[in-house]
Design a protein around this nucleic acid. Sequence first.
RNA 1: GGUCCCAUCGUCUAGUGGCCUAGGACAUCACCCUCUCAAGGUGGAGGCACGGGUUCGAAUCCCGUUGGGACUGCCA
Length: 480
Amino acid sequence: MAPRVRFAPSPTGFFHVGSARTSLFNWLYARHTGGTFVLRIEDTDTERNRDEWQAGILSAMDWLGLSYDEGPYLQSSLIGDHTAAAEALYDAGHLYACDCTREAIDERKKDAAKPGYDGFCRDRGLPRSSQTALRFAVPRDGETVVHDVIRGDVTFANVNYEDFVVVRPNGVVLYPLANLVDDRSIRISDVIRGEDLLPTTPKQIMMWEALNNCAGVEAVPLPRYAHLPMLVNEQRKKLSKRKDPVAVESYRDQGYLPEAFVNYLALLGWSPRSGEELVSRDVLVEQFALEDVSHSPAFFDVKKLTHLNGEYLRAMPLETFIEAARPWVAPWSSSWRPTTPPPWSEREFDEDLFARVAPLVQERLTTLGEVPAMVGFFFTEVTLDEAAFEKTIGSDPLGQTMLAVAIERFGGLTWSATTLHEATAELGEALGLALRKAQAPIRCAVTGTLVGPPLFESLEILGRETVLTRLHDALARVSA
RNA sequence: GGUCCCAUCGUCUAGUGGCCUAGGACAUCACCCUCUCAAGGUGGAGGCACGGGUUCGAAUCCCGUUGGGACUGCCA
């Protein structure tokens, strides 16, 4: 039977790169096997749950192209199932009432050999009330084995587990059971999730099997488990929402492409058998195998992501690139827009002009967010880099001469990149300047900086009038 | 503290007992190309955590040590 996998985020913050990776691996597995990818939102933590986070998850998944086949199911709408399962477990004697307070437990724990709850109420036969939680009676002996697809069999001795709380005094069923009941209801066959959940898996297996033996409960086969290695930061700690730059949305904002992001994420903890690193989504789907997932944690390296992004950017057909850049260069005509607007106005911007400029910048970018700064001088006044001006013009008489002769020569020139190139070379030569030196003051005067797109093509596009004006302005600035 | 997981260049990884003088990619350094900056090309430096076994032979298998991490909630 085709696998059924699920991604079950809780909407308690920005969509996290770790979650994105988990989601991607589930998606890849489903697509590779022809299975079903189910989305379930675990929205039962009313304290931290927020609608905007939920919308954020959906939009980030959409951006990454992680399409789901079923759902989204809302965990909050499945609460009836959770309660029914808890009742069945209670009736079968797997759950018992406990009225111990945290303080009482901690007090007894002081001189106990083992930390955690000591099973104090297990045999007290307390009646259920609004003051009692329900705990799962963990077998005192034996062991539970997790048959993990990635790690092999992992054995846990049952004595290491305390009788954990399953239902709060107010009747709310807690995560370990709720999550498992939903997986049963939705008939999940393969649970692919972060390694941080490996130690709690035995609890879920115990409850799953207990449930299968309860009267009136349909037996459901245990899912296969696959625990993915963690994503860590430079300190080798699990990525933290608080301290690490993990919001997927912020990568989109900076101008990373979804294809590059997906490609990079897939390479964290997995590598295709072909050994290639630039891997299209189709090839990812074709080659992905859970068995090939690595065992050790991976560091999320933005530098490598950035490199990959540059590769994707350069590989794009020009028209695709122009459209991809739209949110950054013409946000007013885009349905989605980054937080930082371009330094020009809608009136100043010119679509056709940008189309001519685009090929000049496409190959020198790593992210789309860099576009506005790189092409700003085409659409608005130059933003002068003072240090660059001082170096090439302000304190350099030859630079000033260069500007003066250029103004004279450019005035009567047939206007093209080639002729501008030749003219500049000749003028420089006459002054004993190599082309790299000769072009610097012109570049600075016209673009404001010493680095940028190819100069002569830029001059051609900018036009004689603008170029001459800027050369004059730069010269005037010296005498001022 | 307890339980569990993990361990190849700085980083992501290839490697499943001989093909390993350990391969690739990012980052880094040098040079080339070049109107700047990129891109590209060429080359360099850089790693099997340690100690025992097993074996004719170990990065690869076993044990131990060390190191790192996760979990240990009436959050999800």
